[in-house]
Nucleic acid binder design. Structure first.
Length: 602
RNA sequence: GGUCCCGUAGCUCAACUGGAUAGAGCAACUGCCUUCUAAGCAGUAGGUUACAGGUUCGAGUCCUGUCGGGAUCACCA
């Protein structure tokens, strides 16, 4: 039973009876009643004055009276100006609650999840460079991409998670060159340094040596711009890139070795943060793609060739400008490659939607990419979406790798887990835990706190990462929600010992009244499917993060206000157990959609 | 300079897409553990939604302008 639908249908009926007017039900809008007023759903009558030919207040009174006498779910109503606040009776809430328990078992799906509808979506995220380790910005990307994949899957899509690794190019050659010159054969094994970090050190080393060279050249009287282009180190790196492209075996061997170190490092990080992929694409395999598409575009007259032989697309009619697609010497650029990669992916696994989880500094690139693919009439073009997320700033300002202000992903994860351990030990909450269980708990809490901190903010917005706040475990945080879950788990363990059922709705078939906090929680439970739909439609995990916090908060109010095992009425007692079990299940599932685990005890 | 995004409590974020007296958390202050986990709950205080106009029954939300912050405008990726 969809309660909003039922109310809307009744309102439509009211309009029909009272004012001889009928709506499309989708045009009737309900909103949650604000906390300071009585009621659960509010209907705003201001827009309908011309239909009712009465002032909004009078219309609201009339409609309210109609609903009260003609609907068995409306207990009462009140009118404030043009706002009609509807109170739902307890029996209706109970009925709604029972349908929540029973529906999933019919569908063999968690409550709120949609059955598979056959549409396919590909989600690209992570997409690191192999010249340095992952940092805080990558974490936002990875958590978003992974969470979104889970959300879309729960919403009925067949999801394919892909990663496009940038494993070639001048930046990779820089770390290779520095390693060649200063590495003395060092390896992750010999140095005890994680592979991606080791390679990252040489990338930094290159930059240091390069800067020194430029400075020396400038001191010798060279223009700075010229020095930057003519420094021996940068020329050597460029030469190395050419040799790489020609397939020079010694360069390729070094490249393979160092990239392998990086992949081992990345895999460790991915495992630690709990993300995975169905397919990994490498730019070394895709960077030559797209040239045939350029030919196709020329034939179709979508692109044009300039006198020097370079190929461009003119998007002036779309409000953009001209964009290069192929250099005069026939070599490709980023855009060329992305055109080719899009086709390749569609051939590999045809999709209805493709979501690129990429930072908003590339907004323009994707706008152009999508327009070009549209002009080329690719069947998948309408399903392309750029999930453009904002940067993560630090209290000190922007993260800059060259200035060493980058927050390293591995370090951060380690710190979060350590903080979780310190907090837990301080509270003395690990009585009866084995060492392994305790370690697992710290990991679940620390990672949860980090993921939630990054996911609770609207992805589109830039956000501030305050290290102090991120390790706080009170209030709007994952540990708060996890704590709520753990508390309920304790109740359920006790209930099971007592022989109380966790899903049996018959045990409270005759219950008729609810505590206010219970009705509020049920109200939130009822919202879950819509929240999932919204998160999926808007590609926005923060919707669910916000939601699950509300749910946990409201349950905690119930928890302190209402006793379960001291309840004399066996019907009420049975209800509260099932009610708690259901809350726990929704918390667990919603957190799972965020990629966050919940502990049974903490 | 052109284009795009942003500006909400001291701080970090919400505000159901135009609805009521703009809400949470953190920080501050006050209460609540002999009762199911106090990582909790209840309460107090904190606002000219950057500013100025406009649109309308109604604007944090839409339009115009100003100020402030950011991104982008590469034959880099």
């Amino acid at each position: 039973m969809d309660i909003e639908k039922r109310i809307k249908s009744k309102i439509n009926e009211a309009f029909h009876t009272l004012y001889a007017h009928t709506f499309d039900e989708n045009d009737i809008k309900l909103q949650p009643t604000r906390k300071e007023f009585k009621g659960s759903y509010t209907f705003v009558t201001f827009p309908y004055a011309s239909i009712t030919r009465k002032n909004p207040q009078a219309s609201a009174e009339e409609i309210g009276n109609y609903l009260k006498s003609n609907s068995n779910i409306i207990q009462d109503f009140n009118v404030v100006k043009g706002f009609l606040n509807l109170e739902i009776n307890h029996t209706a809430w109970l009925e709604l609650f029972k349908s929540i328990i029973n529906t999933p078992r019919e569908k063999h799906l968690p409550y709120g999840y949609q059955t598979m509808h056959g549409q396919k979506v590909m989600v690209e995220f992570s997409s690191p460079n192999t010249n340095k380790p992952l940092h805080l910005g990558h974490l936002r990307n990875n958590f978003l991409g992974y969470s979104l994949s889970r959300i879309l899957s729960a919403y009925g899509y067949t999801v394919r998670k892909v990663n496009l690794v940038n494993d070639r190019g001048i930046h990779i050659c820089k770390s290779m060159l520095a390693y060649q010159k200063f590495g003395h054969g060092e390896t992750p094994a010999s140095s005890g340094i994680k592979g991606d970090h080791l390679v990252g050190q040489y990338y930094v080393r290159f930059d240091q040596e390069y800067k020194k060279q430029v400075q020396t050249l400038v001191e010798q009287g060279m223009e700075e711009e010229t020095a930057k282009k003519q420094s021996p180190l940068i020329e050597e790196a460029q030469e190395m890139l050419q040799r790489w492209e020609q397939g020079d075996s010694s360069v390729r061997n070094l490249w393979k070795t160092m990239n392998q170190w990086v992949y081992e490092g990345f895999n460790e990080t991915y495992q630690n943060i709990g993300v995975s992929f169905d397919k990994i694409y490498y730019e070394s395999d895709t960077y030559l793609l797209g040239k045939d598409i350029v030919e196709e575009g020329l034939e179709k007259g979508v692109f044009f060739r300039k006198e020097d032989g370079s190929v461009w697309v003119d998007l002036a009619d779309e409000g953009l400008d001209q964009k290069l697609l192929l250099r005069a010497d026939g070599t490709s650029v980023y855009m060329t490659q992305d055109l080719g990669t899009a086709d390749l992916r569609y051939q590999d696994n045809p999709f209805d939607k493709l979501v690129y989880v990429v930072g908003n500094e590339q907004d323009y690139h994707f706008e152009v990419l999508f327009k070009i693919l549209g002009k080329l009439e690719r069947p998948y073009a309408p399903g392309l979406y750029h999930l453009s997320y904002g940067m993560v700033d630090l209290p000190s300002g922007k993260m800059k790798s060259r200035e060493g202000t980058v927050v390293d992903a591995d370090d951060l994860v380690k710190e979060m887990v350590q903080t979780a351990q310190a907090q837990t030990e301080e509270l003395g909450k690990i009585e009866g835990f084995t060492e392994a269980q305790a370690q697992e708990l710290y990991r679940v809490l620390g990672m949860g706190a980090l993921k939630y901190f990054l996911l609770k903010v609207d992805p589109k917005k830039r956000m501030l990462f305050n290290p102090v706040e991120s390790v706080q475990f009170q209030g709007n945080t994952a540990p708060f929600i996890q704590y709520t879950y753990a508390r309920i788990s304790a109740i359920l363990r006790k209930a099971e010992e007592t022989g109380l059922a966790l899903t049996d709705t018959k045990a409270f078939a005759h219950l008729e009244t609810l505590q206010p906090a219970e009705a509020e929680v049920i109200r939130l439970m009822v919202d879950f499917p819509q929240k999932l739909a919204m998160a999926a439609d808007e590609y926005n995990p923060s919707v669910l993060a916000q939601y699950v916090y509300e749910l946990a908060k409201e349950y905690n109010r119930f928890y302190t206000e209402v006793s379960i095992f001291n309840e004399k009425d066996p019907q009420a007692l049975a209800f509260r157990v099932v009610f708690s079990a259901t809350t726990a299940e929704i918390i667990k599932n919603a957190m799972d959609l965020l990629g966050i685990q919940v502990p049974e005890r903490m």
